[in-house]
Design a protein around this nucleic acid. Structure first.
Lengths: 361, 361
DNA sequence: AATTCACTGACAACCGGTTGCCACAATGTG
DNA sequence: CACATTGTGGCAACCGGTTGTCAGTGAATT
């Protein structure tokens, strides 16, 4: 049994095969890409020679002449962020399944880097998946006009997009907190350039109005665990008994800081994260969070993009897909502290466990 | 001030520029890539036109004629694994800084997929970075002969490599446990196809012999948090009071399972992980682990690869780089339970918190 | 037997650059 | 003033495929 092997020497080309078989290169090309166009006998000779010589088509050359690169660019603002890991995993798996190569680019949260990456990728990719674009609506629309593109978490009319509907879960999260007796709720804001952040806040403050709860907005904070310290301090100072946090990264950072400060979570302060990233289930305490099907969003984005690339198979080309989210309740939320008592730390010894006590309206 | 923008319409080529400037395409090519070869006046006319037309060179065409693709393939067994996130981040950052594009490929822990990916990438990348290769030594050597390549955590004579020296930290970890009074230590094994796993075990069992401690080997287990449950059960059954675990993923899974079973960490069982991945510092309890400079390893690998690609600048081409590691002690290790008492679960209620009690020799 | 037609393979242009070589002009040298 | 030298730009081949077009062959049709 042959072990997986990599051939040595100069890679074979169709010219080599043509020479071996005594035919023209064009015939070789057809034998491999349009087999029915070539007589079965020569075809089989050619195919045998191709296997023999370990022929692999040169994707550059193929791209040059056919215009198709077989690659899809995936742009994310920050590969450092676990949220995008899940997204990248989803796109990678689905692209690979479809025979495409993924070109991963980190746009460093910069609209300029993003624009130049898109410009560059216009030639070297068949399509683009743009996560949480920092471009203006106009620029994104222009990019979408220039080449097949699917945006993720970016809602611009005319641009195909996959939207993770965290704003919807926002109402669930607030209801959850209200039912636990919380009346002073803070929203820990993410970066201002993030449209997701804006949409989440809009939905949350709207939900607050409907329910007669005043939600205060704190921040903005960078979407990193390190920002959690500042966020936690601000939250404590605000007097809120519960926080809904832009994302799990900041939330996890807050958890650590609150512990350092002796503020018990969830007894003194309830925390709701967003995204349900890797780690949200095993941090301490496990985080109540709005679960997003991130990986699935990546897959759906690829499916939508491929439908654009190949309109024949694509069936009805959907241009917008909204992914549902839901609240996952773990141990970082519980009943609000007694209404009139200050939210200051009390006994400062680990409590008997989470989820004690019921709702105190 | 112009906003970042993407041009519309057909991308400009050197032929367009040549037409505008009334020169030959070859002159345009030279004006842009070998400026001193062209008269300054025409050069400037051409450069102005290039900017004007928003010219971006077609990387496919450039690759075809020059043989350089400006891309580097990065192969990892499983993008799902946070360990590789750090690696990918390191390579991405460094490649980007050097003007290269990263082609990310998931080889699905399969030697066949890996070999075919390498074969494919021979044409479309200038070099390769192969994380934790599953190939045989011979196949990897052959691949390395066929194209510039740097392996990570794979030690094959003749193949340039970056080795993260976790075996060294293994001794430190064992000393740490011994000083805490542990005498029954288990090694939770990773996948058999992983050379890192073999090297870690060899170093650990050797260190055990030197110190007169018998280390038992349990497993193998897949490197996923889910495997932690089985690993935890096996470990408890083995009677060990401390485990050194193949990687943090499994270790974190064990933490969860042990909690479910009422086995307290670290009082009843100490756990040492490996890699110090994202999450190791905020899981419950925070994990004592062997910290690896993973991101830096990725960067070093890129540097070594680029030195191979461009021997002029590379200076002394190092072919092997060993990255030091160290033990990071957090809260998942403490003194061994009383020697003769069975390690069975006791009170089965959450303990007062980590880090109680001192060493009991 | 003459005509038509499907089948098959070769030729050549093209994708967008790079690069070796040559021609021509301007300048320097004897 | 003749000749060598240097600076510039163009021509054309090439990288490795794809694809439109055409010619030759043999079989089917009339």
């Amino acid at each position: 049994m042959a072990l997986p092997q990599v051939s040595v020497g100069r890679p074979a080309t169709i010219h080599d095969i043509a020479a071996v078989c005594g035919v023209a290169p064009s015939t070789v090309s057809r034998a491999l890409s349009t087999p029915e166009r070539v007589n079965i006998r020569t075809r089989e000779r050619i195919q045998a020679a191709a296997v023999e010589l370990n022929y692999t088509p040169n994707s550059q050359a193929k791209a040059l002449s056919s215009g198709k690169t077989g690659a899809v660019g995936v742009l994310v603002p920050d590969i450092t962020n676990p949220f995008y890991f899940d997204l990248i995993r989803g796109t990678q798996l689905q692209l690979k399944a479809a025979g495409y190569t993924q070109l991963l680019v980190d746009t460093e949260e910069s609209d300029e880097v993003e624009a130049s990456a898109i410009q560059q990728l216009r030639k070297s990719a068949d399509g683009l998946i743009v996560g949480a674009s920092r471009l203006t609506d106009e620029a994104l629309l222009a990019a979408s006009a220039a080449m097949p593109l699917v945006a993720i978490n970016r809602d611009v009319p005319g641009v195909p997009a996959v939207i993770i509907d965290t704003p919807a879960a926002t109402g669930q999260a607030l209801d959850h907190l209200i039912s636990l007796g919380h009346t002073r709720v803070a929203y820990i804001s993410g970066p201002v350039s993030s449209q997701s952040n804006a949409r989440r806040w809009d939905a949350l403050s709207e939900a607050g109005k409907e329910r007669g709860i005043d939600v205060v907005r704190l921040g903005p904070f960078a979407p990193k665990t390190q920002s959690g310290a500042a966020a936690a301090d601000t939250a404590v100072h605000s007097g809120a008994t519960a926080c809904i946090v832009f994302n799990d990264l900041i939330a996890i950072g807050m958890l650590q800081r609150l512990r350092e400060r002796g503020v018990r979570v969830p007894q003194d302060m309830s925390i709701v994260g967003c995204d349900d990233i890797f780690g949200a289930d095993f941090c301490n305490p496990p985080l109540t969070t709005m679960s997003s099907p991130i990986e699935q969003a990546g897959r759906v984005a690829v499916t939508m993009l491929l439908a654009q690339l190949d309109p024949l198979r694509g069936g009805g080309t959907r241009t917008r897909s909204v992914m549902p989210t839901h609240l996952t309740v773990r141990a970082s939320t519980t009943a609000a502290p007694a209404p009139m008592a200050p939210p200051a730390p009390r006994l400062h010894k680990p409590g008997p466990g989470p989820l004690t006590g019921g709702a105190r309206p």
